[in-house]
Design a protein around this nucleic acid. Structure first.
Length: 153
DNA sequence: GCCAACGTTGGC
DNA sequence: GCCAACGTTGGC
């Protein structure tokens, strides 16, 4: 099983939305590196740290699970969507989506500030300066420690 | 709201 | 294939 971190702005889609929905399509990814993780590496049952960006507090707000495997992102073919991509074709789609299933909502987020303060997380991607990648692989040890941090509050 | 860091585009 | 210009991300 692999571990991931996926970023979202809670004003757009939050962990509370996922808790309500149960399962949600993770679409609108328009970055090739993130696309490759979704399309090529994510597998059913992989665990996800659900990260809130551009908010207060910034941090990991809960845990989710990959459900199924990647499929063509429908928003790329929707000319009314701001994510419409006229260079993508149905026979060879450029962008992919995947379903994400709710597992847990942290009572309080494990904040980015906390992670940056703790040397244990020095080699975690999300604590690196300038790291904008919205879908990132996460080491098992980091995943476990973050879940424990939340459980021990 | 600012802006540094990063990714993409397109002219050459 | 280089790289300047531009657009976006996302912490602060």
């Amino acid at each position: 099983m692999k571990y991931w971190l996926m970023k979202t702005e809670p004003s757009c889609y939050s962990v509370d939305d996922l808790m309500r929905d149960g399962v949600s399509m993770w679409d609108d990814v328009r970055n090739y590196q993130a696309r490759n993780f979704i399309r090529d590496e994510m597998e059913n049952g992989d665990r996800v740290l659900f990260y809130h960006s551009n908010t207060k507090p910034i941090g990991i707000a809960g845990v989710a699970e990959i459900s199924g495997s990647a499929y063509s992102d429908p928003t790329q073919f929707d000319s009314s969507s701001y994510k419409f991509d006229d260079k993508s074709t149905k026979s060879s789609p450029r962008w992919f989506a995947i379903d994400v299933k709710f597992i847990a909502r942290f009572s309080e987020p494990v904040t980015l500030t906390e992670l940056k303060r703790d040397p244990f997380f020095d080699d975690m991607l999300v604590t690196q300066k300038g790291m904008r990648l919205s879908v990132q692989p996460v080491a098992k040890k980091h995943f476990i420690r973050i879940v424990n941090l939340s459980n021990n509050r």
